[in-house]
Design a protein around this nucleic acid. Structure first.
Length: 275
DNA sequence: GGAAGATGACAAG
DNA sequence: TTGTCCTCTTCCC
């Protein structure tokens, strides 16, 4: 499931299979019939991730269209290699969009957004997103301008896509732990140096997530094995300090990890390490 | 078999 | 802050 690193991987996967190819599209679920018809026969130029948004540019008869996909909480892409399978399998479950060539199939399930945008709408979307730590050359100062003047908790600011694009509930919980910052700390109390270090940490962690496909944030000296405990892989597939570890001992100080609802999302932190 | 919950975001009040 | 939407998995009976 999707934070920014997942979407960047989706873009890479789609480019590897479909970039430069003429595609067929369909909506087995019938909820994107018109859109699928509109892009069938188009050439897929490029898939690009911006924060949690996926933008796929397609051309047909020299006309440019952009497919915009946002996975939301539980949307997902799955891929099938037709050279291995031999024939095109029927869609399983609720497939909103199927993209296909003679060689490959990509199925999209459960997205919050699956729509076609014109260039003005694409610009409007990009305009309302903050800097993406995964995109090379992103300007962190746009995020700092908001954070340094805001009374909102830093944990809320980190989730705002107009402040930083691509950070979700896991990365925010983990980066705050790594810097010993309490989630309720107002943004304006975060120092410039601390912010720059946090940004650099997000750049490192999220790029690592793009490469590995999972979120690992625990320093090697704090891994359970290094602490004499049995290895534990979290349900989401990576190794984390606090995310979804409520009531479990902190990997650093053994204090039970706390959990609270904030702005309708769960926040996790160590009450001792993050005073 | 059914409820609850999940790495998200939006609108309404 | 609450309600709503989207789909699948996990957990409990």
């Amino acid at each position: 499931m999707p934070e920014g690193h997942t979407i960047h991987r989706s873009a890479d996967e789609l480019n590897a299979r479909f970039a430069g190819k003429v595609i067929q599209a369909s909506s087995p679920q019938s909820r994107f019939d018109a859109g699928a018809d509109a892009i069938t026969g188009a050439r897929l130029k490029q898939a690009q991730a911006v924060g949690k948004h996926l933008l796929v540019t397609l051309t047909r008869q020299r006309k440019l269209t952009t497919l915009h996909v946002h996975l939301g909480l539980y949307g997902a892409w799955s891929y099938l290699d037709l050279k291995v399978l031999g024939e095109v399998p029927s869609p399983v479950g609720q497939v909103r969009l199927r993209i296909q060539t003679h060689a490959a199939v990509a199925d999209l399930r459960g997205p919050t957004a699956c729509e076609l945008l014109d260039p003005e709408q694409v610009q409007a979307l990009l305009h309302r997103l903050g800097p993406d730590p995964i995109a090379a050359g992103s300007d962190e100062s746009k995020a700092w301008n908001v954070i340094s003047t805001s009374n909102s908790p830093i944990s809320v600011l980190l989730m705002r896509q107009d402040v930083i694009a691509g950070v979700g509930n896991v990365y925010r919980a983990e980066v705050l732990f790594r810097f010993g910052i309490n989630p309720m700390t107002p943004g304006r109390l975060i120092g410039r140096d601390v912010w720059l270090a946090m940004w650099a940490d997000l750049v490192m962690l999220m790029n690592q997530g793009v490469r590995s496909g999972q979120i690992d944030t625990v320093a090697s000296e704090h891994l359970p094995e290094a602490m004499g405990r049995s290895p534990r892989i979290d349900r989401h597939g990576g190794e984390v300090y606090v995310y979804r570890r409520e009531n479990m001992p902190c990997l650093v100080c053994s204090t039970p990890i706390a959990k609270a609802g904030l702005a309708s999302r769960n926040v996790f932190w160590c009450p001792t390490c993050q005073r």
